[in-house]
Design a protein around this nucleic acid. Structure first.
Lengths: 223, 223, 223, 223
DNA sequence: AATGAATGAGAATTCATTCAT
DNA sequence: TATGAATGAATTCTCATTCAT
């Protein structure tokens, strides 16, 4: 009966954890259930992870690693901001389809009530992408591709907010329903349409009077 | 000892529930604790609410009623879209400050795992605002204040996404930390700055080359 | 099924706890087992006692109360020291026979590893008797019934040590065996003999040369 | 990795066991922890000792061996009873200081609930000393150094009770507190005072009237 | 109608012991 | 022979819900 846990098995344990936590949430997930489903005993689970929280965090880290890798690959290539945005939106949609549970787990993390834990988690999860986005935007502002009267951090924040909501809207039951409510019952399948629309929204949510947008052209010719 | 539960008392019960659910979440909140804090017995709590879920939903409804009222007041006045947006952003910030627990409770709702419940909740909570926003946008498109090549539902969706994230970012621990990470430690107090920036972001996230925006005019005159 | 716990029932719970703790010790006693044996649910047990330790302490207190009462009755009457001693020895033997579990529980208390808890328990359990004994001895010294070159506290301590060991020797398996080993297999039943012998031991364990005992007579006549 | 367990290693294992059992007690001590601390694997621990109880007994035996040796050295020399007593009290105090864990382990043994085990243990631990003491006393009675109207076994028993309590009072948390309660906060350091007082207590705990002690002289001259 | 004590299933965690390597 | 990972029964404690008073 005693079979050493292969790396493969440990992977399975993590995937089981991710699945269960994504499905039921932190509280409702039972360590015994995870162990049983992963085909191991509770004992080993606790051998590898001090307690439920630790195990949860391990599952989260696994997800964020994957996500970061995904992100890095994407941001490695040089792009114009809008191309970045398009690529990111597409990537987020793809990731959401392939790793629904990762997104759900991420959503579960946002429920962390304890501010100290929340700070650590936010740092761990958002640290990389927040810097990445902010940098890209700063560069784009220097090259004149993004209006410079916007704080790069806040710009990145709003931008990520839209991506985040997109992820949740593809993966989490409540957000899915909300998505359908706003955009119709089959919206979840029209990914290209959504991408196109979101891009347009970002370009210019509101039509502005000429007078309102002297800043629009950093070079000044148009206005 | 036998006192009929006055409306006032029922109010107190709901407020207690909202506070507890907002603070601890659905699972971690104890019905006994709610009853004790509200100064009633568990028995009556179960007399009025079939079970914990039912009670939770009642608390949620109480919050959404408040929220809707708030929204309706705001949308009653006729405005240009950007003015609407500005008013809404301000309102959201104010509401977040005044009713942190309502927002937290709303956030708690988004964790509903059961799709059926999720659908009912989304309908209940988002039904009004989604219609409201979509209508406003449609009207704005007809009057030419909003580019008409955007789907009004999706536009409303993206718009509400930004507002929603703003609420959470002001009220929920994890999102607060994330907010600070993106925009600096004191961002939570600079509400005016955030409002101004978000408005700009909505106006036009990205500067566009002329060539990039032939679609801007659906009628083609401008370009 | 829901029957209110009468005072009688609560008594039974305590007695069950005392029995189980006495039988198995603190660690080995299961709260579920106590509840089952007392005919209640674990829930109530935890309603009345915060946790296992608290329940254990309640059981201990119950025992010490009984013991103190027993002691007070005895010490109320004025006696000569040796009469006190005789009365106490007899009382201890009687108490041991009637309340074996109380003594065993007392013995269990002596295993408290945590010095802080130990201090509190010792204070609670020994506080009264230590003062009582010391006072009696001091008075006896003033009246010349006890040699005055002995520290009253230490005298009381040695005296209580002998009583304590007697209790354990009548009640706790290991000490019982040890008792038999020293004094024969049937010693546990010869209580009168033991009393007489212990009294003699206290009177004068060792025969002394005349020269060694000038202090024996506080009045000086004999020597 | 495969190294034969040297005698030295086995010693270390036993010492670790003694330390842990003394510190935490039988139940609370973990075999895994002992193995880890001793620098071996649980596997070997179970190779050498069938189970936890067996290992515990081995640790106990190790302690009693040491204790017996100590005792034998002391009793080898011929003495008058009071000199023996004084020597023993001093020895016990010294042993308590040097081998606190041995005494604690001994105390742990007294908790054995199972009468069969208790009998075996008592026999093993007390067998030698009970005989030794009883013999010495019998001889002393024959030589007139101890009053002959005392049962030698019981005398030895009472005497050992006092020594035993002294050991515990120097080594075990609860008994230490009790000691301080009776004799003041710094009593644990005043070993000489304690020795002197205990000797006096043994000499003659209570002052007796002439009439009360006709038996004092076994030869009958005095009375 | 109101009370709140009682119920008991369920969840996290521990650790003596086994046995494949 | 030594290792130490794996097992899983057992234990403490919680809390939604019931129902006698």
């Amino acid at each position: 009966m005693l079979k050493k846990l292969t790396e493969e098995k440990l992977n399975e344990v993590l995937e089981t954890g991710i699945r269960e936590f994504a499905e039921r949430g932190l509280q409702q997930t039972s360590m015994n259930a995870v162990a049983t489903q992963a085909g191991i005993s509770v004992g080993v689970l606790y051998k590898y992870y001090e307690n439920k929280d630790t195990f949860f965090l391990a599952c989260v880290r696994r997800c964020t690693e994957e996500l970061e890798q995904f992100l890095h690959q994407l941001c490695a290539e040089e792009h114009k901001p809008l191309q970045y945005a398009e690529a990111l939106i597409g990537a987020v949609q793809q990731f959401s389809r392939q790793h629904r549970d990762y997104i759900r787990l991420y959503h579960e993390v946002t429920h962390t009530g304890n501010p100290v834990h929340a700070a650590a988690l936010a740092q761990q999860i958002e640290g990389v992408s927040s810097k990445l986005y902010t940098d890209i935007i700063q560069r784009a502002q220097q090259s004149g591709d993004v209006r410079s009267d916007l704080d790069p951090g806040l710009f990145a924040f709003f931008f990520d907010n839209l991506l985040m909501m997109m992820q949740f809207s593809y993966c989490c039951p409540y957000y899915q329903e909300r998505f359908r409510l706003y955009a119709g019952g089959d919206i979840l399948d029209n990914t290209d349409f959504v991408t196109a629309q979101l891009l347009k929204f970002m370009e210019s949510a509101f039509t502005l009077e000429q007078a309102d947008i002297p800043h629009r052209s950093p070079k000044g010719e148009i206005v």
